[in-house]
Design a protein around this nucleic acid. Sequence first.
DNA 1: TAATTAGTTCGTAAATGTACGAACAGTATA
DNA 2: TATACTGTTCGTACATTTACGAACTAATTA
Lengths: 99, 99
Amino acid sequence: MSTETKKYTDKQELIAKFSNALGHPVRVAILQQLSKQSCCFHGDMAEVLPIANSTLSQHLKVLREAGLIQGEIDPPKTKYCINKDNWHLAKGVMIGFFD
Amino acid sequence: MSTETKKYTDKQELIAKFSNALGHPVRVAILQQLSKQSCCFHGDMAEVLPIANSTLSQHLKVLREAGLIQGEIDPPKTKYCINKDNWHLAKGVMIGFFD
DNA sequence: TAATTAGTTCGTAAATGTACGAACAGTATA
DNA sequence: TATACTGTTCGTACATTTACGAACTAATTA
């Protein structure tokens, strides 16, 4: 058992985590696209986004680690989808935050 | 007139800007407090938050520059309030973003 | 087996974020 | 005028983020 006292509540951490994931316009653009058509290949996004392929992979990783999307290999492509459970969780905590 | 093409839409930039401001738990805590009681002195926040005074000033500046709060000097104290117009704008764009 | 396709990971550079204490500035009080 | 009170700004250190191209991996096709 840790002797550290927690600095912030779980809800505060959660809001910050989701917000952080939305804190770059390219990630907002990615999520807008995915929420519009539910799924999308890396390559399709790479075509329209103004960043290098490797940078896109990094941003997708950030979104994955925040739980907002999930990836699935569909050789030779990679398909990304919204993680609906966490999307709804995020929607709920953000709306709750703003009252 | 600039020759640069815009990389992201205004809405994407706006969502990212507000989200960025919410991207640290201490800033979430500050906003929760302010939205609960509408106004609050720096000193009152400093008492309950686990950060140095100067660090608090930095976070307040981030929130001010994102437009979410506004400060007013009420000597010898500084009073911070939610910026209601932008708060509602943020609420609107975030809810719109999540559908 | 060699080549191709699609993405990821690595290495790296530059910028930004977070944190602290020290020094400072403005107002009020002794 | 000196002191105290409240916050901000400065200087600094360290960590994280963002970006790119190069190198790599895995699966398919020639």
